[in-house]
């Protein structure tokens, strides 16, 4: 970690490594990023276009994301919301246009970008044959930086502490989704990309997610989210990208 910090300092001051501070230990939540410069564009999407199976999903898409901002991607089924999210994460090749992280194309900047990214996709990425806790341990390993929040604490925060030693296949859809979302807490990532994170959740869990997002944004994090739920959560929503409206 030490070498990495020095490296960043040499390159740019603004990209100085993050100092991780848990909000408070009794109520663990998202981290605070000390180097918040609210005016710096972190994620930038330029003239992004995508064609799948000979169908143009979107073209000429431009937007950017600064610290503390949330973008909701909106659109009817099949309008390319998931594809857009995957493209931003670098899971799909960029056909047209560019995606920049800190001013550099993500393909060139892969390591730095991915160590700041946490993705919770439509497919949860949890293993049926592992327990909730084992799943989170793997998530923590795979992530760039682990946060001081342990798997148990994260599961408690999401309200699934009781099932931490159960195999994920024994859990309900909602519980599994909570386990997947607990991933947001066990590692440090500035950019959260969430594909329909609310679908199977009950009201209480939705409120928890809202709190998590709100905290994350307050601390200088960024969120790209797709959701069919109305996002009229005051103060959170900064921008909306509408797809598939002609």
């Amino acid at each position: 970690m030490q070498t990495q910090r020095i490296l960043y300092n040499v390159e740019t001051q603004s990209r100085e490594s993050l100092v991780v501070v848990p909000l408070n230990s009794s109520h663990p939540d998202t981290m605070e990023y000390s180097d918040v410069d609210p005016e710096q564009v972190m994620l930038k999407v330029e003239r992004l276009g995508c064609e799948r199976n000979d169908r143009t999903l979107f073209a000429g898409l431009n937007f950017d994301l600064k610290s503390g901002e949330l973008i909701q991607v909106d659109g009817p089924n099949g309008s390319g919301k998931t594809t857009l999210l995957r493209t931003i994460c670098g899971l799909l090749p960029v056909d047209e246009g560019k995606v920049y992280w800190c001013g550099e194309p993500i393909q060139k900047n892969r390591f730095e970008f991915l160590s700041q990214l946490i993705f919770v996709g439509h497919k949860h990425g949890t293993k049926d044959e592992l327990t909730a806790r084992e799943n989170l341990d793997i998530d923590q390993l795979l992530a760039g930086q682990r946060s001081p929040i342990s798997a148990d604490q994260a599961l408690t925060r999401l309200g699934v502490a009781d099932c931490r030693d159960q195999l994920c296949r024994q859990l309900s859809a909602g519980q599994r989704q909570r386990v997947a979302l607990a991933r947001l807490l066990v590692s440090v990532g500035r950019l959260w990309v969430l594909d329909e994170p609310l679908t199977a959740l009950d009201q209480a869990a939705q409120n928890t997610v809202r709190d998590l997002l709100s905290n994350h944004l307050d601390n200088g994090g960024m969120v790209v989210i797709t959701s069919h739920q109305k996002m009229d959560w005051d103060g959170l929503l900064k921008k909306t990208i509408r797809l598939g409206y002609g």
Partner: peptide
């Protein structure tokens, strides 16, 4: 691939 773990692997910085 089917349960999405591959996406987590592909978005890992390692």
């Amino acid at each position: 691939f089917e349960d999405g773990s591959l996406e987590q692997i592909l978005t890992s910085p390692h």
